[in-house]
Amino acid sequence: MDLAAVDRSATQGRSWLHDAAPAAKLISLAAVLGAVLVSWNVLVLAGIALALAAAVVAARLPLRLAALLAGYPSVFALIFAFASGTGFVNSATIVAKAVTAALAAVLVVLTTPYPRIFSPLQRVTPTIVGDALLMTYRSAFLLLEKFAETLRAIRLRAGLRGRQVVRSGRAATLALGSVLLYSLDLAQRDYDVLRLRGYEGRLRVRRSATFSVPASVAAIVTSLALFSVALLWRVQWRSLNPWSWLVPLLGLVALLLAALLRWRTR
């Protein structure tokens, strides 16, 4: 998990999706999740996934990172689909649901800095949860970096190479143990900083100064359109199922247009 790359994309990216209000993006995420909940049509889900992929391309997000993050749950979904033995089409549907939902979440996280995502959550959660959410994400950056450094140092000192599985495993465990101790020292340092600054609950996140209203509206309208398509196909499935191929086709067209736009404005 390359959290640094996720954060870089969220903070340094410049696109209409980056400009949309975080609340609008969270509403859009909810609408796409609604579509995923409602739809059991693999073609409709594929179409929604393609439309989201088009948004990833149009917003100039890092493609490899987005694909890795969205593809990660598909491994587990595949195992679940196989284990549940519901047949090929339903297995494909389960995987499509996993990838589509993950892609929607990834779109939000790759275009919104984490304090902006957590600040709406902070308002509705108890103080300890909201504040710990903010500090967890920050700590995860530091610990991932520390883990990689420690692992590298241990491997170099022990002269480890790729295929020494047992020794490599032992080195990784030792590195994780060291990182655990380091994390407790980090907690102590954080505590000292909080105490020095007079923290008595509720870390404050500065609200975004500007966001684009058209971009926010576009994000919400697009996601509601995707939800409506899923709902329509679920309700009117008898008459619409023969036309299901239209949805992925439209998604594909959107993806091609987005790719063309990205290539032309490179």
Binding site: M1, T136, L180, S183, E200
Partner: peptide, 28 residues
């Protein structure tokens, strides 16, 4: 005390995130 609990909660949650981010693919 909140300010004692928030940092320790955050780092231990982060340690779990670090662990959960490394998948052993063949056995999911």
């Amino acid at each position: 005390e909140l300010r004692r609990r928030v940092p320790i909660l955050a780092v231990i949650s982060a340690i779990m995130l670090v662990a959960m981010s490394s998948e052993i693919v063949p056995i999911a």
